[in-house]
Structure formats: structure tokens, C-alpha cells
Design a protein around this nucleic acid. Structure first.
Lengths: 186, 186
DNA sequence: GAACATAATTCATTATAGTAAACAATATGG
DNA sequence: CCATATTGTTTACTATAATGAATTATGTTC
């Protein structure tokens, strides 16, 4: 997976293994083997390659998931049994009452460990979430994503979803909820 | 650096090297050496550790990384977003290109004295502005309002309008623009 | 402070990441 | 065609990542 990303970016930039080797100080033999997924590079090597390609290391690691990711069952149970509804979560409604059911905007603050669980909204409802401070984990269905300050995510929320602050500092997010009342939008 | 992050998160979770070793399938000897920065782990090993800690691998590799933007509709997919800067105004586009002309979201940073002037948008276009840091003055037509951190305003912007930072500190706002394209929506 | 338990570090060994150099494959030109 | 670069792969070797077992440190309880 890492190899595919490296090769894709290298080919896109139109540079050879030799050039990338010079720019990254990684031998072209190693680059060849990494791209062919024959070896298991160290983080230091991937760092060098990322610098040589002038991309962020996450660009190279994206999609590089471990084959089998299993949910830790004990932890999952812990989370589901917590009854922290609006406990440690402060919701600040920005949008006026006239917009309820249309387009709603909030500032939401999470204390350490706080979580906000939402049941499925009406069909085609979308949420737009921007992290203003700290970090949160957003889980919608089976998908789960960790986000930091400055990160943005949008997702359909016609399934149950949760937002939780796993860090050791308060987290603040900006949330926009749009209720797509049978609009013909994409 | 990776070692520091791993140890910090492990200590925060209150688990031992032995437990993390079981959860990650990485020997505690290796974990010890990685935390002490005595070795140079492979990405596969760091992946296993990240899974054991239930964090994203970027959490472990990060020093200070650029904010990442995620666009998730039904599944995770990447988007391209634009960043423009001119005259002390930095515009950070959050929403994906697929939403242009529909619902757009931005983080906009103003240096001291900077101002952003917008011509009239299409009819019935609305803007929703939240001040995240500092203070700004919003002028639409003859109306003018001063806003500070935490304030929220919504206004129709089918006339020229400007946003300016009159203070002596940088200002940051969150902006939502909705183009009401003759929809039957309220 | 001896005895016990638990946590983290070192030690000895194996597996493999990483390199330089040789090799193979693909052009480009005369 | 042959010669000569240019690009990517394979080989031979060295450095070191990774492991399990032994060792040292850190508590706890009697």
C-alpha cells in the first residue's frame, strides 16, 4: 500500500528512481523493493521518501491499513454502556430558531472523555464538522475517524453516530446540520 | 519522536508495556526500545502499535502536521480543497468541490487591519458567520455590526458586503455560504 | 527487610531492512 | 546493427529491527 502510493506520486511527478534516490537519500534498490511491496520499510525511510517527494508522510500512509482491523470488544462494550448523554458536553446553538429543521449551526465543547451520541436523523441529513480545538473521534456506522484542530469532515447521518473527545484536553467543534427535505441535490 | 508519542499515549491510557504488547502483538522488548528511541521501527510495527492503542497512526508519527481535511459521504474519499491568501486574508476552504454553488464552508483568517470585500452574490444567497478568534466588523449595505469571539451572524448577501479586522490581533472566522438556487426550500 | 509480585530494561539470537554493485531491460542515436 | 545512455531489478553483503528469555528495577505486604 505504501509502495503503491510512493510509485503513484513519483510517476505523477515524472521522476525516476535515481532522482528520488538522490532527493531522499534512500537507495534506489530499496525504493524499487518498497514500491514492489517486497520489503517492510522503517518509518525513517518513509520519512526520507516523503521529504524527497515533498509530500506529507500521511499521503504515503493513507489507505495503508492493516489487513485485519478488529474492534476491541471490551472497549466497545465500555463505550456503549456509558450514559454520558450531554454530560461534559456543552452545546451552543448559533442558528436562530427560524432555521430549525433547515440548517442548524452549533459550537459544541467536549470535556476530556466526553461523548455525544446521536440517533439516526431524517434521511439524507448531512453534518459538516470542523474541529476548532483539541481532537475528537467521529464514528458513523462502521466508519471511524480521528480528527484534530483544523480538520473538516462531512457525512450523512441517517445512521447512528457519535462524537467523542479521547484526548486529555477539551475539544471544541463547529457543527452544521442540514436537513435535506427531499431536495434533489447530488 | 515516535517513541515519545507512544509512551505518552500509553501512560495516558494507564496500560503497561505487557498489555500493549498483547494488544499490538509487538514484543514488549521492542516497545521498550522504541519508546526509548533506541531503534528505528518499521511502519508495520508502528501500525500494530497504533491499533493496539486505538489511535490513528498519524497520532504517533506527527510532530506538527498540516490540518487534514476529510470528506466522507457514504464512504471515505479524498477531496481537493483550495487555500488562497491575499492581502492578509487567508481563506481555507473546508467543503469539497462537489458542493460548490450549493453549500460552502470556510475558515478565514484576517491579519491586523485586513479586510475581505465581496461583491453581490446570487439572489437569496445567505452567509452564516461565526467568530472563532479576535473580532471583526461586518458591513452589508448600510448595516454594520461589530462582532467578537463566539458571536454569530447570518445575513443575506445579495448586496456588496465586507468583513474587516479592526483589532490589533489576528481574527479567525468560520463562514458558511448557502446558495439558494431557486429551491423550494424555505 | 525479607518475600513476593509486577514493571521495565538488557542480553543473545534470528530475521530482515538497507546498501552498493552487478545485471537486465528499454530506449536513443550514429 | 552496434554502441551508449537511462531506467528498473536482482544479488551479495552488512546493519539492525524484532523476538523470547534473563535481568534489573519498583513497588507492596507481612
Amino acid at each position: 500500500m505504501v509502495g503503491e502510493n510512493i510509485q503513484r506520486i513519483r510517476k505523477f511527478q515524472g521522476i525516476t528512481l535515481h532522482v528520488l534516490s538522490e532527493r531522499s537519500n534512500v537507495s534506489k534498490a530499496m525504493l524499487s523493493q518498497i514500491e514492489a511491496d517486497k520489503v517492510n520499510p522503517t518509518v525513517a525511510t518513509v520519512w526520507k521518501i516523503a521529504r524527497g517527494l515533498e509530500v506529507d508522510i500521511q499521503e504515503l500512509l493513507e489507505g495503508a491499513r492493516e489487513p485485519k482491523r478488529i474492534f476491541q470488544h471490551d472497549r466497545f462494550e465500555d463505550i456503549t454502556t456509558l450514559d454520558t448523554e450531554a454530560d461534559g458536553v456543552q452545546i451552543h446553538v448559533l442558528s436562530p430558531l427560524s432555521m430549525v429543521g433547515d440548517l442548524e449551526m452549533y459550537i459544541i465543547a467536549f470535556e476530556e472523555g466526553a461523548r455525544l451520541a446521536s440517533e439516526a436523523h431524517f434521511p439524507k441529513t448531512e453534518e459538516f464538522l470542523t474541529v476548532l480545538e483539541g481532537a475528537v473521534r467521529v464514528t458513523a456506522g462502521e466508519n471511524s475517524t480521528d480528527m484534530k484542530k483544523g480538520d473538516f469532515i462531512t457525512y450523512h447521518c441517517d445512521i447512528d453516530h457519535t462524537i467523542e473527545n479521547l484526548g486529555n484536553t477539551p475539544a471544541v467543534i463547529h457543527m452544521v446540520v442540514r436537513y435535506n427535505a427531499a431536495t434533489g441535490r447530488i
